[in-house]
Structures are given as C-alpha cells and as structure tokens.
Amino acid sequence: MKIVVIGGTGLIGSKVIAKLDDRGHETVPAAPSTGVNTLTGEGLSAALAGAQVVVDVSNSPSFEESAVLDFFTTSTRNLLSAEEAAGVAHHVALSIVGIDDLPENGYFRAKVAQEQLIKKGPIPYSIVRATQFFEFVKGIADTATEGDTVRLPHVLFQPMAADDVAEAVAGAAAEAPLKGITEVAGPEVFRFDELVAEALRAWKDPRTVVADPHARYFGSELAERSLVPDDGRARLAVTHFDDWLRRSA
C-alpha cells in the first residue's frame, strides 16, 4: 500500500516510516521540509495521489493555546478534505491517553477537537492513543524545575518508548480501519515523581525531585489516574523503562 505519513520527518513519524518500509509498504514522509504543509494545504494533493492510507503524527510548532487549537483543527480539516478528494480509505491519527479528563489543558483540548473532526469526517479512521514517551522525561523535568528542585505530583505514570508508539501506529495503518480508538501504554506503572528522579540519577543530573500534589503538568493539576489508561483497556508495549534508561544513559 501507499501510505503517507504526515509529520513523517519527526521523532515518531520517522520511526513509523521505517516500520512501514520494513513491512513492504510504499511510504511518503510528508512535512513542510518535504514540501507538504497541512496548514496551508500546499503539496497535499500531490502527496496523497494514489495513497490508500494517511497517518497523521504531526505536531503543532507552538503550544500556545489558540495556536495549537488552530493547528490541529485547520490541518485536520485540510487533510480530511484532501483525503476524500484522493480516495484515501483509512485515516490514522496519533493521540493521547487521558485527554478527555483534563479540559483545562489547552493542548489536550486541541487533541480532543482533532479527534472529534476525525470521527465526524468522511474517512474511515483509527485513533491510537498513547501514554507519554520516555524520550520526553527530561523535557518534563525541565518544565517542572524551580532552581534546583523539580516539583511533580505523586500520581500514576505509565510511559512508553517512542519505538513502541511507532509500532502501534504502523500496526494500525497496516490493518483495516477501527472506526474507533485503541490505547497503548508502557508495560509498567510508576509514580510520576519517582520515575523522573530515577532518570535524573541515571543521567547524573543533580536536581532534586520533590513530590507536590499541586504541581501542574502542562497547566493541569493531575488526579491519581489522569495519565494512565483504565485497567485492562490498553495494549501494553514491550520496552521496559530500565532497559531504555540504560541505553539513554
């Protein structure tokens, strides 16, 4: 099959491309750097010509609330319209576990809006919701740092490797449309603050992690299960955090 990967040059997109190539599919990495802009529509028609599947793992260049909402709604509308014109039979989108329960998070609200457009759109779809990536742990610590202290809530956390996210997305793209949502999560459940502290120790980072129930996660105060799927709902990935951490360190 010809599969176009929107955001195909990024962290997840490049891995999805590699996994689909390994499966023998014809892949097209689509991004502004390759002449495809979903916000303006530039290059979409040419990229989608003859495609059976479109995978959207793109991300907003700005996380400011209005900008991120505009990115996901405008790009998704443009994509779905171009897919309908090109006769695309399957739209696959990467989303996030827990976005329904954190409405004060502007990024999550934008992803909910994206999902709603896909569900109401003309293309049969599969939405893959994933938990947070191991690769973003350092960035999370950086945003939660005050001086030499990292403040994070002591809530459940079930992150996963980017490779496993890409495997889930590539698997969905190679199958028939779900016309629904599937969830994937890491194989282990941690406490948010404890996992970040373990990572910083492995990286010889001198910052101290403090458990703070009111510490916010990208603007949201978290409940115990905000960042993990419902019990038994998600498929579990294969890469364990300690194994990934040893490689990263």
Score class of each variant (00 low, 15 high):
residue 44 L to E: 07
residue 43 G to R: 08
residue 119 K to F: 12
residue 98 G to L: 04
residue 44 L to N: 11
residue 71 F to I: 04
residue 85 A to N: 12
residue 55 V to Q: 00
residue 76 T to Y: 05
residue 80 L to E: 06
residue 75 S to N: 04
residue 94 L to E: 14
residue 27 T to H: 08
residue 85 A to K: 12
residue 24 G to K: 08
residue 76 T to K: 11
residue 13 G to E: 07
residue 74 T to R: 13
residue 112 V to G: 01
residue 112 V to N: 05
residue 33 S to N: 06
residue 40 T to P: 03
residue 78 N to M: 01
residue 114 Q to D: 09
residue 113 A to L: 09
residue 108 F to Q: 05
residue 67 A to D: 15
residue 86 A to P: 05
residue 65 E to H: 11
residue 32 P to L: 02
residue 120 K to I: 00
residue 83 E to L: 10
residue 64 E to A: 14
residue 36 V to T: 00
residue 17 I to P: 10
residue 77 R to D: 14
residue 120 K to M: 08
residue 34 T to M: 12
residue 78 N to A: 01
residue 84 E to Y: 03
residue 15 K to D: 10
residue 29 P to V: 12
residue 46 A to K: 13
residue 29 P to R: 05
residue 40 T to C: 03
residue 17 I to D: 05
residue 27 T to D: 07
residue 27 T to V: 14
residue 62 S to N: 12
residue 38 T to S: 15
residue 78 N to W: 02
residue 83 E to M: 15
residue 71 F to Q: 09
residue 25 H to L: 00
residue 42 E to A: 15
residue 89 A to R: 13
residue 51 A to S: 14
residue 53 V to P: 11
residue 97 V to F: 03
residue 114 Q to H: 09
residue 100 D to V: 03
residue 14 S to G: 13
residue 81 S to K: 14
residue 65 E to P: 14
residue 118 I to C: 11
residue 107 Y to G: 04
residue 73 T to I: 02
residue 18 A to I: 10
residue 47 A to L: 05
residue 37 N to S: 13
residue 43 G to M: 09
residue 116 Q to H: 11
residue 31 A to F: 00
residue 115 E to M: 02
residue 110 A to T: 08
residue 60 S to T: 07
residue 60 S to P: 00
residue 55 V to A: 00
residue 74 T to G: 09
residue 30 A to H: 03
residue 56 D to R: 06
residue 31 A to I: 02
residue 72 F to Q: 08
residue 74 T to H: 06
residue 27 T to M: 09
residue 56 D to A: 01
residue 64 E to I: 09
residue 94 L to C: 08
